[in-house]
Design a protein around this nucleic acid. Structure first.
Lengths: 122, 122
DNA sequence: CGTCTATGTTGACACACATCGAACCAAGCG
DNA sequence: CGCTTGGTTCGATGTGTGTCAACATAGACG
């Protein structure tokens, strides 16, 4: 049983900087690939991508679950995917009264954008 | 008037737009999410990410399998992942004599970069 | 307190996937 | 032609994942 749950807490500063250089700069090391693949994987599901996009594009940068849960799957599945996005560090959640609001972790888009930035920019 | 270049500034589905608008622009439709998730998923594996990065960063933009197959898995597994990347449209392959060369599909980085581009740059 | 709505959690199940060894093609070389 | 090296395909196997129904929790409200 290799079900070790060692989740290294993502410190805010650690989450921002050390993700990775652009994919085109040099071959990724195993560690870099592990970290970056986790983000890509989290967005590698259509339902999660729609949820993420719905939150990211929602006004104010945050969205209540009730506003984004219309993606064609059951409510527990939505909750499951939101949890995955949260575990991957892409979203944060906060309960305010009856509803739970999700919000995009700002550093994430920057990190992934840097990953895909070509060395030869415009 | 045959060399008119239409700039796809306001028409996301026209011309260049290879798959989707930025994630932050509006909620993705099911079809957009399906297409985009396929690319993210292809890069959502550490081994594939290392292979892709190795090809993308290799000089000349292409690499022989023999040059990038040192990622800690067996050679059939490497071939399997390269095939997946090829099926996802991220890589192309060409046999030249003894060796097989892989090369990054150029439009891919642009497409994914556009996906993650925030309306307001950093 | 009891009840209703909004989310999260659990258990179960089917399917997909990553991985390997072995067998199989392709090109060069004696 | 047989041999060697490079690469892909095949079959099997264990693990991961998406999904749902059922249950659990957290506030709001009467």
């Amino acid at each position: 049983m290799s079900n070790v749950q060692v989740l290294p807490l993502l410190e805010p500063e650690a989450a921002v900087a050390p993700c990775c250089p652009p994919l085109t700069e040099r071959p990724f090391s195993a560690e870099e690939a592990e970290v970056a693949a986790r983000m890509f994987k989290a967005l590698g599901d259509p339902v999660r991508l729609r949820l993420f996009s719905a939150v990211a594009s929602h006004e104010g940068g945050e969205a209540c679950v009730c506003d984004i849960s219309d993606v064609g799957v059951s409510q527990p599945t939505v909750s499951h995917h939101l949890k995955k996005l949260k575990d991957a560090g892409l979203l944060t959640s906060e309960r305010r009264g009856t509803w739970v609001y999700y919000r995009v972790e700002p550093s994430v888009l920057a990190a992934m954008g840097q990953l895909l930035s070509t060395a030869a920019g415009p």
